[in-house]
Design a protein around this nucleic acid. Structure first.
Lengths: 214, 214
DNA sequence: ATCTTTCCCACCTAGGTGTGAACC
DNA sequence: ATGGTTCACACCTAGGTGGGAAAG
């Protein structure tokens, strides 16, 4: 696994509440859609003001202790040390990566909250945005265009953000959510998948009364 | 490639520290507008699914300790023991009040958060909704139609919702925010003020290209 | 030349308004 | 009859889409 877990794992004796039993699991709610994109090579647009990721990152969580409190986080880290280009219909390595900005943690806005509530319904990170603006103050993830990234989810058993760094935790990585950041789509198959599935792009669907595709 | 450290160590302010010096003050950001409504007799529509209050409740906070954490709450309590009716262009007492539902506290979604952040910019409760649906599960305030109410703000110095009950606090009441709950506007002067000032009602403005007022 | 980025736009989703007729 | 409540609706605000021209 190329993405080392950054935190202390669950199951380590906990001085605060040694009785808590949990074995957290996470799966993607919309795994099929992610895999459809992944097969072709997912691209995510980044802009100055920030653009959402699509498909949305939706997690189904299980195995938590109902009464304990958990914090859920997402970050996006580089997959490798390469810069890419899209050439002759394929993504190819095109040199060494540009310097990365320090990565931010996106705290799920419901955090902290009880295991029972986290497990109740799928958790969505749809408000997360991506940007190439290194001066961004809005909380968007700052990425380099034409670089490949991997989103990760971190689950922490802690009642308080202040105690997060010393609490049991587990990291979840889904390879089908890897993507290449772009300022404009390169692969028109990806463009078409976005148009087909993102409700906000309905205006570009052929059968949606939109203006079609040129 | 080294992944960035996921957690910066937080500074750990201790909010129960007896040394903390604060003298909280709150004023309404949009006091003029509230007073314009108050002079005529503010009405707020309540519906089954919940309706926002307008004007929005915007508070400017000062005098907090920058590093301590505070929780901000709003509740809406009956002004008196009366039921009202609108008769001959005036609000008049029309009997004894109906039984009230237990009142909920609306926790400002940013809570808890540092004094510095609360004071940084005016705090808005614009997402708060009013309803007459006693089965409401959405978090709206449940009120009786044709009764008079007073919103109140509560400021609590506490880092954690669980400690709220034992923490220093202060309540702020602005009489110009009193209103009578209605299912349909009674005073057409209030209707007109809402149309004139609420951007969502722009379609009803005479000079807005809307369909006018019949 | 070629490749990447920026900007404005028409077109959507999502949801907050009072209206006026219908309902109770 | 009277007066309060509900509902679908046209009309807005607010903001998320990719396109395509222009700029870098």
């Amino acid at each position: 696994m190329p993405y080392p877990a950054p935190f202390r794992p669950f199951g380590v004796p906990e001085t605060n509440d040694p009785d808590v039993q949990d074995d957290p699991k996470i799966e993607l709610e919309n795994d099929d859609l992610w895999k459809t994109f992944h097969k072709i090579g997912t691209e995510m647009v980044i802009t100055k003001t920030g653009r959402r990721i699509f498909p949305a990152y939706k997690a189904k969580i299980s195995g938590l202790d109902k009464k304990s409190k958990y914090i859920l986080l997402l970050d996006i880290v580089p997959c490798d040390d390469c810069r890419y280009k899209f050439h002759n219909g394929k993504w190819m390595v095109a040199g060494k990566a540009d310097p990365e900005m320090p990565k931010r943690m996106y705290i799920h806005p419901d955090s902290p909250c009880t295991g029972e509530q986290w497990m109740q319904k799928p958790v969505s990170f749809h408000k997360l945005k991506l940007t190439n603006n290194i001066s961004d103050k809005s909380g968007a993830a700052i990425l380099n265009s034409m670089h490949k990234y991997q989103p990760r989810i971190h689950l922490v058993r802690a009642s308080d953000l202040l105690r997060m760094a010393y609490s049991p935790n587990k990291t979840f990585v889904f390879e089908e959510t890897q993507f290449i950041a772009v300022t404009a789509y390169q692969n028109e198959k990806i463009t078409q998948l976005k148009i087909d599935h993102n409700p906000f792009a309905k205006g570009f669907r052929e059968n949606g009364g939109g203006r079609g595709k040129k």
